[in-house]
Amino acid sequence: MPDPFDPLDPLLDRWREPPDLSRSLAPEVWRRIALTEQGASESGGFWRNADAWLSRPPFAILFVTCCALLGLFLAEVRVNRLQREQSAQLARSYLQLIDPLLTAAPAADTP
């Protein structure tokens, strides 16, 4: 007598043995550790390189000069901006000085 059809049979047929993770996992872990260590040594290398460059007197002088020039440039930009703002303010103040109606500007809605 044949066995009755069991709906679990096709699902059990599709089941496969899981791949052996133990073989591929360890090399992957070591590879990642190596990558991380390499990145750390590269970033440390940047600072070592920077230190080596800055320790040379010509480059140190160049670096300090560049810092001073950058500071002066930013100060000039700030001064220019302030002068523009102050010019606009003085122009408004001058108009108020010569025009009494502007001095009392809120009265614009009076008849």
């Binding site: 920077a50 230190d51 080596a52 460059w53 800055l54 320790s55 140190a60 670096f63 300090v64 560049c66 810092c67 001073a68 020039l69 950058l70 500071g71 002066l72 930013l74 100060a75 000039e76 700030r78 001064v79 302030l82 002068q83 102050q86």
Partner: peptide, 25 residues
Amino acid sequence: GLLVLLLGLAVGVAAHTVYFRLHLP
């Protein structure tokens, strides 16, 4: 190297401050 770095920053800030104070309208 760190000393030079800090010196550069200090010189930059000092140059900025002095120039700004002198040219402040």
